[in-house]
């Protein structure tokens, strides 16, 4: 992604921060700004930035890997101010998202929110007394899924990897390319975006490029969303993030039996861990998945055939 765009995205996020915290971040050099993945605010603790998967503390002298005496500390009042800005002074209108632990922001960014969970009838009613906020900068990497889609011939794709390895970024680009006519004709891609992480829809508008023929369903459990997509959208492809439980596997089986391709992701470290995740091994047994992509840190990934796990693989660095 263009460095100027990354810096702009970082600076857009600063509008949600109190002035005291905003100023030192605004003063960072452009190279640092472009490499920031997250801004983390924790009550009573130093302000940190996540860059290349590591934590850096923001101090008066710059950014360091360990906290120092001159670190900028975040106060509860700063958190409260930031939280109200994130909610645009309308906490009630973000209650659904807060119950899932996040707030969707304009420009595709997301804020993860931690605090005291209020339960009612064993269901999360709201979060209050915010203790930390994680501002995650939305990044698209166009064409990162090129190598995966070279193998695409209508078969399903499972993208696996640990946290922060780029699974959602790959999924997003795969959807974009399929819905943009970069792989044959434009495909009707139904994206079941339960947590708003794929398309970053805010006010009905996706803030990431999902292609011309993508339909996005948000805020619904994935299994239900897949069912809705099958019945009402008549898709060529259904895409969703993070395969969770057997109900989703059942929904995928139904899609496969209806002739719809599925692209999804799963949290697993390597192919050897598949047996430890019953939904993943059950998914592979359905025959709905033709290609498995294993992602590693540093945005490296390997593409393997699902059935054979043979030599038909390429290791790609993006």
């Amino acid at each position: 992604m263009d460095k100027k765009i990354l810096v702009e995205r970082f600076e857009n996020l600063l509008d949600y921060l109190p002035e005291r915290i905003k100023m030192p971040l605004f003063a960072l050099n452009p190279e640092l700004k472009a490499s920031v993945q997250e801004i983390r605010l924790r009550a009573g603790r130093p302000l940190t930035l996540t860059m290349s998967g590591s934590q850096f503390f923001v101090c008066k002298g710059g950014t360091y890997m360990l906290p120092r005496a001159d670190s900028y500390f975040v106060t509860p009042a700063d958190l409260n101010d930031c939280f109200l800005k994130l909610c645009r002074h309308s906490v009630y209108s973000h209650n659904g998202e807060l119950c899932e632990g996040y707030i969707s922001l304009a420009n595709g960014h997301r804020a993860g929110v931690c605090g005291k969970v209020v339960l009612r009838d064993e269901k999360i009613e709201t979060i209050r007394d915010i203790s930390s906020i994680n501002l995650r900068i939305a990044k698209e990497i166009p064409h990162c899924a090129d190598e995966i889609l070279r193998y695409y011939n209508g078969g399903g794709i499972l993208i696996c990897g640990g946290p922060g390895t780029g699974k959602t970024t790959l999924l997003r680009d795969a959807c974009r390319q399929l819905a943009s006519g970069r792989v044959g004709n434009c495909k009707k891609v139904a994206v079941v975006d339960s947590r708003g992480e794929i398309a970053a829809v805010c006010g009905g508008v996706p803030y990431t490029d999902m292609g011309s023929t993508a339909d996005i369903i948000t805020g619904v459990p994935k299994a239900k969303g897949i069912e809705m997509a099958l019945r009402t959208l008549f898709p060529d492809v259904i895409a969703f993030d993070e395969l969770g439980d057997m109900s989703e596997v059942a929904a995928v089986t139904q899609s496969f039996n209806s002739g719809v391709t599925v692209i999804t992701t799963a949290h697993i470290g390597s192919l050897n861990d598949i047996a430890k995740r019953p939904p993943v091994s059950a998914l592979l047994k359905t025959g709905a998945i033709e290609w498995v992509v294993v992602c590693r840190k540093g945005f490296n990934y390997t593409v393997k055939r699902a059935i054979e796990f043979d030599e038909s693989e390429r290791t790609v660095s993006v």
Binding site: L84, C87, R88, H89, V91, Y92, N95, L98, R128
Partner: peptide
């Protein structure tokens, strides 16, 4: 205090 709490609170 408008907007500072959930729907029920508001």
């Amino acid at each position: 205090d408008l907007g500072k709490s959930d729907t029920e609170g508001q």
